[in-house]
């Protein structure tokens, strides 16, 4: 698993992941997202372009990150999810809380620009 994040001038942090977001990697992703929010990076975009598969543990990590970001007054958005992730979101009806954005730009739109903390 590879997880990288970059915070832009607009205060939005994009988290890139590569590999499977599943039982084996979910705990680490959950911890990393919590660390980012604790560090003041509360406007997150999770880029799923290079994530090949997501299971319920992975979904749980994203929900955990979403909760942490919302509690801090921010948000976590997901972008570039593949067809399997779309199927999972639809099946669990969690697409209502983790709306999948087609592109990073779409996910970024609507975030009020702020200076990086």
């Amino acid at each position: 698993m590879i997880l990288q994040s970059e915070q832009g001038d607009d205060g939005i942090t994009i988290v890139h992941m590569e590999g499977r977001l599943d039982l084996l990697t979910a705990a680490e992703v959950k911890r990393d997202l919590a660390d980012l929010v604790a560090d003041g990076q509360r406007r997150l975009i999770f880029d799923l372009e290079r994530v090949s598969f997501v299971d319920s543990s992975g979904l749980g990590a994203l929900i955990s990150g979403l909760k942490a970001a919302r509690q801090a007054g921010g948000d976590l958005r997901i972008a570039r999810a593949n067809a399997q992730m779309h199927t999972l979101l639809k099946l669990t009806t969690l697409e209502r809380v983790l709306r999948p954005y087609e592109t990073i730009e779409e996910a970024r739109a609507g975030y009020t620009p702020i200076a990086a903390d």
């Binding site: 749980g60 990590a61 929900i63 669990t92 809380v97």
Partner: peptide
């Protein structure tokens, strides 16, 4: 699996696995 009203603060983060299997 969550129904109509989703309370994000209290949304479970685990235990969906077999519900997903039953639904699929």
């Amino acid at each position: 699996l969550p129904e109509d009203d989703v309370d994000i603060a209290n949304l479970p983060e685990s235990g969906y696995g077999l519900s997903i299997a039953y639904a699929s």
